[in-house]
Nucleic acid binder design. Structure first.
Lengths: 258, 258
DNA sequence: CTGTCGTATTCCGCGTCGCGAAACAAGCAT
DNA sequence: ATGCTTGTTTCGCGACGCGGAATACGACAG
């Protein structure tokens, strides 16, 4: 194992990972003895690592046969990661096309524990342009991305998020719950969300949700621009284009094509 | 953390996994400080875990921004696991149908470091039947599963595996390399492999490869039965059925339908 | 250029806790 | 029964992981 190099290697961790890799690489359940032999570590040690990995649900222990195999925590993480990978790949060309068509900043974001985080972005070439950095977070209720996802979340989850205290980012941020719910209903009807100066003074934003096969929003696309530049008619065509793009991505995730 | 219960939890491992989970759950790169704060562990400790996780390539460290994100080792494991999951799901109904049609033992196997390992199996109801256990391994060159996969492997890899010293399992095991290569050429032509008493005396086996979108074999299906019971004509129809089943699974993995 | 953050690293001495041989238990063959 | 094989538990030694504090680096402001 190439576990040296940096002097800051924590042996237990390093060795436990070797065990994890070994179990994951075989497709089937493996017994303790075999693992210990293959990884060249004392049975006792491997035993402890396995217990720990099982407790963390990275591995699964089948009591019947005393075999170890990959656990659901590991699978869940993997799935989350690959779906993100996939999302980026599918979204990037659509975003490029949107940027080309409108020359405004296009964002791709997901929701993580009640916040919007930007996972990709293409900037407009205007000197005056909206800027967010990948990895940044914004509140759900003050962004078009957030509203677009909120609107298509299952009733209960949406309600829970709206019920939290809503912080005002600007003078125009809507912090009144009934008002927000009304906007969400409208978003559901139109298929896209709008936000004007609610997150950043002078900026506005249009967002459309990307849904998976079950109808759950897993991300959203948005176009953001200075309020002045987005005339009513441009905004309308942009909204349509965003919805089209978002829908094309959605179908690749199993959403109904209609 | 539900890391108690069993008294055999290794703290460094347990805590490092928490760090891993945390990084993987956010879709984007995370800086050390944020991780440390979120996981409620001292910066120094988290730092060491990160170093270790990066060394094992479970995480990736972007030197530019000093951000940590999931690494390719993790991705590779995840991919391997999910494709196996998928394989089982797709193969099971096909296997059930084959078992029903011929009432012989049907095996599903993959190749792992130069051996065939059985990852699923459905038994015939005959008293005299072939039996392997899930997780068992057999040589590549003495099984129809192995030959089926070998034949469709890229030239170089196939050659490397054939070049190894071939151990004889029975009197009829082919250990002569030219002979084996000739059989593989035939397998490529027919689309399936045959083995008669080469792995187990009195047993014979027909195997067909499951290919992915790139044409690489990722598994194989086989039917195994006592040599006596498989007449020439039954063998022929079984081979055709196996190939059909294998092909149906292959297309689900992106292989050309033709 | 100089100070002041806010990061990521490095140092280092303390004492925890992970280690692994060996003893134990539980199956499953012969 | 008796030998195997497996997983589990015990226990005392001392390596090594720990984390506070000190340092280095870099970004930004004045």
């Amino acid at each position: 194992m190439a576990a040296q190099a940096s002097g800051y290697i924590v042996q237990p961790v390093s060795k436990a990972l070797r065990v994890l890799v070994h179990v994951a690489e075989k497709g089937h359940g493996v017994p303790l003895a075999e693992i210990a032999a293959d990884v060249r570590l004392p049975k006792t040690t491997v035993f402890r690592y396995l217990q720990t990995l099982v407790a963390a649900e990275f591995l699964h222990h089948d009591m019947e046969s005393d075999h170890y195999s990959v656990g659901h925590r590991f699978r869940a993480l993997a799935r989350a990661d690959t779906s993100l990978q996939r999302l980026r790949n599918l979204a990037l060309p659509e975003m490029a096309e949107l940027r080309r068509a409108f020359n405004e900043t296009i964002n791709l974001g997901i929701m993580v524990d009640g916040h919007i985080v930007y996972i990709d972005m293409m900037e407009s070439s205007h000197a005056l342009r909206m800027q967010t950095r990948i990895g940044d977070r914004d509140p759900v209720h003050s962004t078009s991305l957030g509203k677009a996802m909120l609107a298509f979340l299952p009733e209960a989850e949406c309600a829970a998020l709206v019920r939290r205290s809503l912080r005002a980012r600007t003078a125009r941020t809507v912090i009144d719950q009934p008002t927000l719910l009304r906007q969400l209903a409208k978003t559901r009807r139109l298929g896209y969300a709008i936000e004007i100066g609610e997150n950043e003074d002078g900026a506005m934003c249009i967002g459309a949700p990307i849904l998976d096969g079950t109808g759950r929003p897993l991300a959203a696309l948005s176009l953001s621009a200075p309020e002045k530049r987005l005339t009513r008619t441009v905004a309308a065509t942009a909204a349509a284009a965003l919805c089209d793009a978002a829908r094309r991505i959605s179908v690749r995730f199993g959403a109904p094509a209609g």
